[in-house]
Amino acid sequence: MEKLLEILEEIDDSIDYENETALIDDHLLNSFAIISLISEIEEEFDVEISASEMTVENFNSAEAIWNLIQSKLED
């Protein structure tokens, strides 16, 4: 989780990722930020995220993103 928070901080350090639960709903992360985030995640965690997983639910909070990564690692 720490690694993920580091990646997120690097994209935008003005957001309180530990408590924010509407990253997408409140337009805090735009689609360009999401693309950067995904390429960082894929490199860091050696997972592959597909277009079908690009849902609001998967990216609205750091926890949701972390859960997505975990589910990918378990596959």
């Binding site: 689609s31 390429s39 277009a51």
Partner: peptide, 27 residues
């Protein structure tokens, strides 16, 4: 947008750009 940006070919180009020119160029 996501279907294209998450496609294998775009991801590959992204990786190459990143290695050669850095994060900004790949973005």
């Amino acid at each position: 947008f996501y279907a294209v940006s998450m496609s294998k070919s775009v991801k590959n180009v992204n990786k190459k750009l990143r290695k050669k020119y850095g994060k900004y160029a790949s973005m």
